[in-house]
Simulated assay, not measured.
Amino acid sequence: MKTAPKATRTPNGAVSNKPIALRLLPYELEKVRAVAKREQRSLASVARLALLRGLADCERKKQPLAA
């Protein structure tokens, strides 16, 4: 009898064995927590999606992150 593969919330192909640390100010963390709760996502998922959106915006505008 085969067992079903373990379900994960990690997107297919994502590197899950090399996490990165993210330091947020208290009010930034509260914003992330609020979005995570509202969208029923993990903090890591919200952070990843926000990062991807921010990178796409920088690429589209052809501006550095700190601009």
Rank of each mutant, 00 (worst) to 15 (best):
K2H: 11
T3L: 14
A4Q: 03
K6I: 14
K6R: 09
A7Q: 12
T8Y: 04
R9S: 10
R9C: 09
R9Y: 10
T10F: 14
P11L: 04
P11N: 09
P11I: 07
N12G: 05
N12R: 14
N12I: 12
A14V: 01
A14Q: 09
A14I: 00
V15C: 08
V15P: 03
V15I: 15
S16Y: 11
S16M: 07
N17W: 10
K18W: 01
P19C: 07
I20Q: 09
I20D: 00
I20E: 04
I20G: 01
A21N: 06
L22G: 02
L24W: 02
P26S: 08
P26R: 01
E28Y: 07
E30A: 14
E30G: 02
E30P: 03
E30C: 01
K31P: 01
R33A: 03
A34T: 12
K37Q: 10
K37A: 15
K37C: 08
R38Y: 04
R38G: 05
E39A: 11
Q40E: 12
Q40Y: 05
R41N: 02
R41Q: 07
L43S: 01
L43I: 14
A44G: 08
A44S: 15
S45F: 07
V46Y: 04
V46P: 05
V46N: 03
A47H: 06
R48W: 08
R48K: 10
R48H: 08
L49T: 14
L49F: 08
L49C: 03
A50R: 13
L52C: 10
R53A: 15
G54E: 13
G54K: 09
G54D: 13
A56E: 15
A56P: 05
D57N: 09
D57G: 04
D57Y: 09
C58I: 05
C58N: 07
R60N: 06
R60V: 06
R60M: 05
R60E: 15
K61G: 04
K61W: 12
K61L: 14
K61E: 15
K62E: 14
Q63Y: 01
Q63W: 03
P64C: 10
P64S: 15
P64W: 07
P64G: 11
L65R: 00
A66Y: 02
A66L: 03
A67L: 03
